[in-house]
């Protein structure tokens, strides 16, 4: 239910932003289309915590900023490698172990690796990642495990939030 509401809210805000009309008829049509889409998504059984990660902690926003900085740093590095006439690339495959506990954590980690220029996740099997790295530096940056710890921290905060919410609900029931 929470996920359906969140999907409807996202769709509604998106519709309002993109249409820019505030006439009753058009608004009603927009509302109808939002309801229709939520209904179809419900019938397709795709409304769940994966499509609507409402439980993710606020820590995801500082992580995004850190990730943008990281992307910029490695993009500069890869650009310098590409522009050198001899092109000193050392392509290699790495096998990494993700320390996150949930599937969502693994996917966030794998996609962050792919998003950073210089490293691409080739395979993701449970918590084993096969990563293709372009140079020694990018490989070492990944092996230092900073990104892994960041994602694990985001996930851990998320789990903490969930635990606190569950405990609160329990306490409320007791009263």
């Amino acid at each position: 239910m929470l996920h359906a509401l969140s999907l409807g809210l996202v769709l509604g805000v998106l519709w309002l932003l993109l249409s820019g009309y505030f006439v009753p008829l058009i608004l009603a049509l927009g509302l109808a289309s939002v309801v229709l889409v939520v209904f179809i998504a419900h019938r397709m059984d795709v409304i769940d915590h994966e499509g609507q990660p409402v439980h993710l902690s606020w820590r995801i926003f500082p992580y995004w900023l850190w990730l943008l900085k990281e992307i910029f740093v490695s993009a500069v590095h890869v650009s310098r490698v590409i522009l050198q006439p001899r092109m000193p690339i050392r392509p290699r495959m790495l096998n990494l172990k993700a320390t996150q506990h949930t599937e969502l954590g693994h996917v966030i980690y794998a996609n962050s690796i792919t998003l950073t220029p210089g490293t691409v996740t080739v395979e993701l099997d449970d918590d084993n990642l096969a990563v293709h790295a372009l140079t020694k530096e990018t490989a070492e940056g990944l092996e230092s495990g900073d990104m892994d710890r960041w994602v694990a921290a985001v996930e851990w905060e998320t789990q903490l939030d969930q635990l606190i919410a569950a405990r609160r609900a329990e306490l409320k029931k007791d009263e």
Binding site: I71, F72, A75, V78, S79, I82, M87, I89, P91, T114, L115, T116, P117, G118, T119, V120, V122, H132, L134
Partner: peptide, 19 residues
């Protein structure tokens, strides 16, 4: 165009796609 195989070309495409 410069990088040798498809996997290393993905890194170059990654630069365009992100930065």
């Amino acid at each position: 165009l410069r990088l040798p195989d498809v996997f290393s070309r993905m890194h170059a495409a990654g630069i365009v796609d992100t930065v």
